[in-house]
């Protein structure tokens, strides 16, 4: 082959590759999507005590387990409120199971805590479990497409259109908060809420702290369902005047697996 022709082909080939790759990479940089996890949260505090100075909003919950113990109907009410508004399917089997919020026993929700010689009531105490909307979320770190990401208000979001279903986030979540659509969920949604989509098979889903309701000035569905009893209190953790902040100041609360440094936004009154 003629030398100059070979050279030309080489250059043309390289240009073509660069031409295909560069715009997509550039676009996503321009869109400002590079910061997948929150910058201010990355400084880990020793013993989980010292958090970075709060910047902006950070939504969170305080969950009062005693309120749920006092009223056995409260947990199903919250779960139903969430699952019906978000078209969460019910497959009736454990293999396909999808859940956004559910009850756990104390031992399973807090596996690092001891129950030895503790109050008998602890064994049956219902703990509402859901996505912890961590300030330092391992799932967001793991996601290869930014399909799950941290909103500036602290909500760990899901973009169901972008998820490729690799389930890396499910392996990364230390709270078992994520579910996968192992099959088409549509036939298993009991009563469709026409105001919210369902999901398609092959994507991961979880609690999104009702970002769509917050945008309309509503409370998250679970918090609203337990409003009268105060079982789930919702608000901005960074606002010292919010109800959650007041409760947190007053009561002793715990978080799930604080030693992992994920900084959950969900607190429990036991």
């Amino acid at each position: 082959m003629d030398n100059s022709r070979r050279k030309f082909l080489k250059i043309a080939g390289l240009t073509a590759i660069a031409g295909i790759a560069a715009p997509t990479a550039f676009n996503s940089l321009l869109k400002g999507e590079v910061h997948a996890s929150s910058g201010e949260a990355s400084t880990a505090g020793h013993g989980g005590g010292h958090e970075a100075a709060p910047v902006g909003k950070r939504y969170g919950f305080v969950i009062d387990a005693q309120k749920f113990a006092a009223d056995p109907g409260l947990a199903p009410k919250c779960i139903n409120a969430c699952h019906s508004v978000h078209n969460v399917p019910d497959f009736g089997n454990k293999k396909d199971e999808i859940k956004w919020i559910w009850t756990e026993t104390y031992a399973h929700a807090f596996p690092d805590e001891s129950q030895y010689k503790r109050n008998e009531a602890l064994h049956t105490l219902p703990i509402m479990t859901l996505c912890n909307h961590c300030d330092n979320p391992p799932c967001v770190r793991a996601c290869p497409t930014k399909a799950t990401f941290r909103n500036p208000d602290g909500i760990i979001m899901m973009d169901f259109h972008r998820c490729i279903g690799c389930r890396f986030c499910m392996a990364a979540c230390p709270y078992g908060a994520r579910s996968f659509n192992w099959r088409d969920p549509r036939p298993f949604v009991k009563q469709e809420n026409p105001e919210y989509p369902t999901r398609m098979r092959g994507v991961v889903e979880k609690c999104t702290m009702c970002y769509e309701r917050l945008a309309e000035g509503l409370m998250p569905a679970c918090a609203e369902a337990s409003k009268e009893s105060g079982g789930i209190i919702f608000g901005d953790l960074n606002d010292p005047a919010s109800e959650v902040s007041m409760v947190l100041k007053e009561k002793f609360t715990i978080q799930r697996k604080p030693a992992l440094g994920t900084k959950p936004s969900i607190f429990y009154i036991i």
Binding site: N87, F160, D184, R186, E192, N193, P194, Y196, P197, T198, R199, M200
Partner: peptide, 9 residues
């Protein structure tokens, strides 16, 4: 594939 997730009227 809009309607795989979104609910049609």
């Amino acid at each position: 594939y809009c309607w795989d997730c979104h609910i049609q009227p």
